[in-house]
Simulated scan of single mutants.
Amino acid sequence: MFGFVANITNIIVFLRIGVNDNVTTLLFALSFSDLMYLTLMTPPVCSNIILTFVPNWPWMIHIYICIELLYWPAITCYDFSAFLSIGLGVTRCACVAMPLQFKSVFTKSKTVKLVIALFLLAVCLRLPIMTVNRLGWQTDPNTNISYAYVVKPNRRAMTQISDILNRNSILYINFIIMIACVSILSFKLYQASRIRKSYTSASTTQQTSEKTDKEGLSAKDLHVVHSVVLVGSIFIMSQAPFLLFSTARLISDSFDIATASRNRMLFFLLSQISLTCSYLNASVNIFVHYNYNSKYKAQLSQLLSTCKKR
């Protein structure tokens, strides 16, 4: 519920600010993607909880319609959010590391095209597994009533293809790129901090605040870089459990919830930790925006003040 409220708030505030630059465009798209992930993932999660604790619950539809048909679109939205986080890290990293070459490259129109391209990439990478599930009809012999259920032809082959593409190759690439971006940006922040300290010792505080450091980082740039570093760090921490989870599945075929091996409970535990981290990743960015985006903070305060008066 907090994730729903946080992302809806982000979307409203960014619209009030105006989606006029590349960073705001990416953050707006990220909030929308996170909201879609939470919306699509919640019904499968709730269905699994009911199925686990109330196995005899009288379902109006076949249980796996809710679980299977919504799960993979939700994961596609999560992949899209991951790609947007990577795009945010790479664009800021390029602008900070080589400002003269890249600051005029990442315009709003190009960023919109990048967002569309990343969405299409996320969909295409998940198509093999999303096309597996379709609705079929089956008759209950006891009641002679037909009901819909999920048909999964070629599921094993398509799952293997999806695992190779998304759970292993793309996941490792995303993780490495984000670690590199966060490391570079953190180093630039460290450099900027040292340079500003040297300015402070040589001149007045007023002169320091008006200066741009030697690396081309103004006060506004520093706030943006801070926020991107935090968003990237949240991404890295939330993806780490899933990285361990996927690596274990790659090493051992018996590491699956469907098996009766001793790894079954470990699989269940890691999958739940990974799910919890994905929910946190899709929910906590509001704190980053509030602390490091002055326009966001002002608009949110104004919005809350208006709601309080009503």
Rank of each mutant, 00 (worst) to 15 (best):
R194G: 12
L171M: 15
S183W: 04
K197G: 01
I164D: 01
S183T: 10
Q160G: 04
S198G: 05
T204I: 02
F175S: 07
F175T: 05
N154M: 03
Q191I: 05
N166Q: 06
A180G: 10
I173R: 09
A157Y: 00
S198D: 14
Y190N: 12
L185A: 07
M178W: 02
A157L: 01
S201C: 05
I179H: 10
A202Y: 08
S186T: 12
I170Q: 10
A157K: 00
Q207F: 13
S209I: 11
S209M: 14
K152T: 03
D163G: 06
S162T: 03
A202S: 06
S193D: 12
V151Y: 01
T205L: 15
Y199I: 11
I161R: 00
S186K: 15
T205H: 08
S186C: 15
T208G: 14
T208D: 04
A192T: 06
L185T: 13
D163S: 08
S162D: 08
S209R: 12
T205C: 08
K188I: 13
N154E: 01
T205E: 12
S203I: 14
Q207M: 08
L171C: 12
S209L: 09
N174L: 15
S183L: 01
T200W: 02
Q160S: 10
L189A: 07
K188M: 08
I176V: 11
F175V: 04
Q207K: 11
N174I: 14
I170V: 13
Q206T: 11
A157C: 00
R194L: 15
R167F: 12
M178N: 05
R155K: 10
I176K: 15
Y190W: 14
S169I: 14
I176Y: 13
R196T: 10
Y172Q: 06
S209V: 12
D163I: 04
L171S: 07
F175I: 03
R155D: 00
R167Y: 09
I164V: 07
I176Q: 09
V182M: 09
N154P: 02
S183K: 03
Y172R: 11
S169D: 05
D163K: 03
A180R: 09
R167V: 09
Q160I: 03
R156D: 09
L189H: 11
I184Q: 01
K152G: 02
S169G: 05
T205G: 06
I164T: 11
S162Q: 03
I195V: 14
F187I: 12
N154T: 01
I195S: 10
R156T: 15
T205Y: 10
R155P: 00
R156F: 15
S201I: 08
T200C: 06
I173G: 03
V151N: 05
N174G: 08
Q207H: 09
Y172E: 04
K188G: 07
R155W: 02
T159G: 00
L185H: 06
T200K: 09
V182D: 10
L165T: 07
N154K: 02
L171A: 13
I170D: 09
A157N: 00
I179M: 13
R167Q: 11
R196S: 02
I173N: 05
R167G: 13
R167E: 05
L189R: 08
P153H: 02
V151P: 02
C181A: 05
F175W: 04
D163H: 14
I179T: 14
I176N: 11
Y172C: 13
T204P: 00
A180V: 13
L165Q: 10
I184F: 01
N168S: 12
T200G: 06
R194V: 06
A192Y: 10
V151H: 02
T208N: 12
I161S: 00
Y172P: 05
F175A: 04
